[in-house]
Design a binder for these strands. Structure first.
Lengths: 222, 222
DNA sequence: GTCTATATTTCGATAGAC
DNA sequence: GTCTATCGAAATATAGAC
């Protein structure tokens, strides 16, 4: 294909097809999240992308640099998603229900990069720096955001006073952990996708019920 | 040192010092849980053990076999601990409080192998088979055990009826997840050990309160 | 930009002396 | 059982033609 500044000269149209660089990046993300930084092979990434191995070095110089590009992209996506689904609804009850719903939908679609990110962060805490930096450039960590949200809801007497750190740990744990353990187990016990989906939808209700019952204030209701 | 069937001939005493094999195994566990199967280097394990690299092959033939020995040991320890701390107390309230307490104590001591195990299980689901096999040889999975425990407590009207799978996911998530995310974060934000310990002890109470309030039956109390 | 061929390094594994 | 020396495979990275 003849390319010129992102335009496909042959067809005279803006290129919608992925550039070689983008193809490689996508393939690298697939392989890295599956095998990890150390287990991934440049050859496997090239095969996954359907390009010559040498091109990975042409575009990204080294495995190390390619890895960092992939991780930055993942962190960018994760942080943006969390920030986006945090900005929901006025009443705390609605906020909580919506947050759990969207958060779990996001996790279901991206559970592959979950364990990967946690593992790489344990080996190299530089990743944690990147995540925290990205959050603060977006206006604050989820902890900061939720603390403000809780403070407001308490004043409005929607919920009882709760410690933000405890609440964040509760919701993060309940939302995220199943997507770390269940996928490996599911592939062993032959849990079908549809049964998995049903389980996930039930979890949404269960998590909301558990957390909301714990903090809500009943105004005149039994 | 002159050795003969586990006896130290020079001193005429049973050997309390670790054998070379045991020293290697311990070092391997340290390095594998820190760097993962792919990131670990035989040389680094040898250095950690303070022995010649060649001895690793003498005792374990290959990196693959050494890795599997380490993983089997870890799984053995994890399963035994879970089974052990599950067999506690008659009343469900006491059982729950004690389980959370001991489970979290165990996790605090062994959080290094947590992310490692979850990561390796994601890459190679053979590990899941090993875990499930070990559990069934010990009388059943935690899910089986808790289902029976719940059934009994419901009959005694100590708790309302609950779905075992939901309850297991709730308690596992709340107990385990913090030990996956917090250690990397703690090392970045300079959270001291004592403050971490305080946080953990508060978590125990918070988790028990949250779960118990959700399932208990109030007999005549407000 | 893309290919083939090759350089360079790292690492698991073995041989053989003691 | 333990050591030194070394092999051979793999994997990252580069050279140079097209």
């Amino acid at each position: 294909m003849v390319k010129f500044f992102g335009y496909n000269i042959e067809k005279g149209l803006p290129m919608k097809e992925a550039s070689t660089e983008k193809v490689i990046l996508t393939a690298a993300r697939t392989v890295f999240t599956r095998k990890g930084k150390d287990g991934a092979r440049m050859q496997e990434i090239a095969d996954e992308a359907g390009v010559n191995k040498m091109l990975l070095h042409y575009y990204f110089r080294s495995k190390e640099k390619l890895f960092h590009r992939v991780v930055e992209e993942i962190i960018e996506q994760v942080v943006n998603s969390v920030v986006k689904i945090s900005a929901q609804a006025e009443r705390f009850e609605d906020f909580l229900r919506t947050f759990i719903d969207l958060h779990i939908d996001f996790l279901r679609e991206n559970h592959d990069m979950l364990t990967f990110l946690l593992w790489e962060a344990k080996k190299d805490t530089g990743l944690v720096h990147t995540v925290l930096g990205k959050f603060s450039s977006m206006g604050g960590t989820p902890l900061d955001y939720l603390a403000a949200k809780i403070h407001y809801a308490v004043q409005k007497e929607e919920i009882r006073p709760v410690e933000p750190i405890e609440f964040v740990l509760n919701i993060a744990s309940l939302d995220i952990f199943p997507f770390i353990v269940l996928p490996p187990i599911a592939s062993v016990v032959n849990l079908s996708d549809s049964r998995m989906d049903a389980l996930v939808e039930k979890r949404k209700k269960e998590i909301f019920r558990l957390l909301w019952n714990d903090i809500k204030i009943n105004n005149g209701k039994s």
